[in-house]
């Protein structure tokens, strides 16, 4: 038992040591947002002494630009969760259960596509979006320089992961359950909706979370395919803040950064238990 105790001591010591840099970083970030200047972790006033706390860095919350950026971030993230969710759960099911010509090619194809970095595709996507923008009526909402267009591109980039993830979850469900449902009188769609989807809920939750975070933090795609502040999301807004002001007010940048994290932190607090479940077992029940 003695070795168990020392073992536990060492693991706690190791864990504590390894989170120290992270803790220091976040503490610094929080202190910086309410200071005019900092030296190390200490807020510094104009005379060089300790002090000089201010809420001035947070004045941006009274500007409409930040709220529009926040809304755009939210729109992109939610649109991605919905788009990726629907396409991955239906596509993953089909790939897991149906035999059709080109199935294998499709699976390897998506895997290969996933290996391409988004940067390599930017120019091609630009042309696609410009073309989409010319479609009458819906063009302005899904083309170049629109939140919808950005969401569309992000969904496409996220789909290979989503489809493979959901296919894996569906693969783990016994065929018998599906057969039983079909004999009980369910058609294909009903089997998918009423029987299969409830079994892969942990997978859907994990995918939704990953997708939301990816959408919320999206920078490269929105930065490339949007112009101006109207369609900017949070990371793009942050970038504009850095490049537009000279000299850069880093304490204000820190405040915006922290502000961007708040929804994610709230999200994590509420889904922590669910997340732990996903990582612990993958699926619950029989």
């Amino acid at each position: 038992m003695g070795s168990g105790k020392t073992g536990r001591f060492f693991s706690y010591a190791f864990l504590t040591l390894s989170i120290v840099p992270i803790l220091v970083g976040y503490t610094w970030l929080v202190i910086a947002t309410v200071s005019t200047r900092t030296r190390g972790l200490l807020p510094i006033n104009a005379e060089g002494g300790i002090g000089g706390l201010t809420l001035g860095n947070w004045s941006f919350v009274f500007e409409s630009a930040i709220w529009s950026a926040m809304l755009n971030s939210l729109l992109i993230a939610v649109a991605m969760v919905i788009g990726v969710g629907i396409a991955s759960t239906s596509g993953g099911y089909a790939l897991s259960r149906f035999k059709f010509p080109g199935r294998k090619g499709f699976l390897t194809g998506t895997l290969v596509l996933h290996a391409f970095k988004a940067e390599m595709l930017l120019i091609a996507i630009f042309f696609v979006l410009r073309w989409l923008g010319e479609i009458p009526l819906i063009g302005p909402y899904i083309g170049f320089n629109s939140v919808g267009g950005v969401a569309l591109v992000m969904v496409a980039l996220e789909l290979p992961l989503g489809i493979w993830l959901m296919k894996g979850f569906f693969d783990n469900i016994s065929w018998d359950m599906e057969r039983a449902a079909m004999i009980d009188g369910a058609g294909r769609f009903r089997v998918w909706w009423q029987i299969m989807l409830p079994q892969v809920r942990p997978g859907i939750a994990a995918l939704a979370l990953f997708t939301f975070i990816a959408g919320w933090n999206a920078y490269l795609v929105p930065f490339t395919f949007t112009i101006g502040t109207k369609v900017a999301n949070m990371p793009v807004y942050l970038n504009q803040l850095i490049s537009d002001t000279a000299p850069v007010n880093w304490n204000q940048v820190a405040a915006v950064g922290l502000f961007q994290m708040i929804p994610l932190i709230i999200f994590f607090i509420f889904t922590q238990e669910l997340l732990l479940n996903i990582y612990a077992g993958g699926s619950k029940g029989t």
Binding site: R179, M182, I183
Partner: peptide
């Protein structure tokens, strides 16, 4: 004829119950 229209009931080794 589709399984649902055959008027059959089936019991599986794995029970194949709907756990949710």
């Amino acid at each position: 004829v589709a399984p649902k229209d055959r008027g059959i009931g089936m019991v599986f080794q794995s029970y194949a119950l709907y756990p949710h």
